[in-house]
Simulated assay, not measured.
Amino acid sequence: MEIRSPSGVVVGVDGSQHAATAAEWAAREAERRACSLHLVYAVETGTLTVPARSGAAVTDLLLRNAQELLDRSLAEVAVAHPRLRPTGDVVPKDPAAAVVTAAEHAELAVVGTRGHGGFASLLLGSVSLRVCAHAGCPVVVVRGGTGDGHQVLVSVREERDAEAVRFAAREAELAGLPLRVLHTWSPVVADVAHAAPMMDELGEESDLHRQLLRRTVDPVRAEYPGLDLEAEDFAGPTAATLVDASADAALVVMPRHAPAPRLGLRLSTASHAVLHHAHCPVAIVPV
């Protein structure tokens, strides 16, 4: 079956409460963006271990059940958001691959924290992590609250993260919220007891980080002149700072850098920590 690649917002659903919450968030986002909404329901039929004679019948039953659940989700979205005309597909494919493929030309992909296949003890399911790591567009994981906070947060590590700042600026503008840009860094001089002889060097290092933040943020500030934008840099752990700040946020935005050759991670350690522990939805933006 060919998977459609719509250009608006794509959301993965599976009949779970986590997916329903993600679909509601995605519907509101599609309304804000004035774009289409497409639901993807994936069914892994290739992993069935049944006799060949009954395999086709079981596959057909799984697909029919999936279509019924998808139709129910589409109806719920249509009732709650009458201005939208949501579409959907049942896809006989691995869920993460199905969402990544469907979102190939999308503005945004949305997933829940975990679906029916996840363990209750897990903070984030493998499907959500894989979509975040491999999607070609920004991905929002709807976790914690529904994002009724008072600001949008975005993390900046280096100048190429300007693309994540632009995404966050648009989200803040659409939501009518201020944007807070955070650049955290670890000083070379970590031992305060021995730092006195190197305070000049520490001051110079701090100046370099302020300059980096200014170069990254100023072009975006010029693109969004009416946006309330605050940029801060300070020495401290990125993940802990963002998780703490997320308690008052509607959305946390993290950049995703291209992996290093061979064993490079697709998602940074900080991104993993924020995805697992943030108090609000988290967006992962490829830069």
Rank of each mutant, 00 (worst) to 15 (best):
A27Q: 06
V142A: 02
D161T: 07
H277A: 11
A231W: 05
S155H: 13
A102V: 07
A195P: 13
D248F: 08
F234G: 05
E29W: 01
L179A: 03
G12M: 13
S126H: 06
D207R: 15
S206K: 13
E68W: 00
R157P: 01
A30N: 11
A169H: 10
R157G: 15
A27D: 06
S246L: 03
S5L: 01
P225H: 14
A168I: 10
L122T: 11
A258S: 08
M1T: 11
A250D: 03
E76T: 12
V142P: 02
V11T: 09
A222N: 06
D207Q: 14
F167H: 13
R215Q: 10
A42Q: 10
H18E: 14
L275N: 09
A193E: 14
V9I: 12
L263A: 12
A109Y: 09
A106M: 06
R4D: 12
S186D: 12
V91P: 09
E159K: 13
A22Y: 01
D60L: 03
V40R: 11
P259H: 02
T184V: 10
D191W: 06
A22S: 06
P219N: 11
V252C: 03
C280K: 03
A172H: 07
C132P: 02
R33E: 06
A273N: 05
L275G: 05
R83Q: 15
R130I: 00
T21D: 08
A162T: 15
V156M: 10
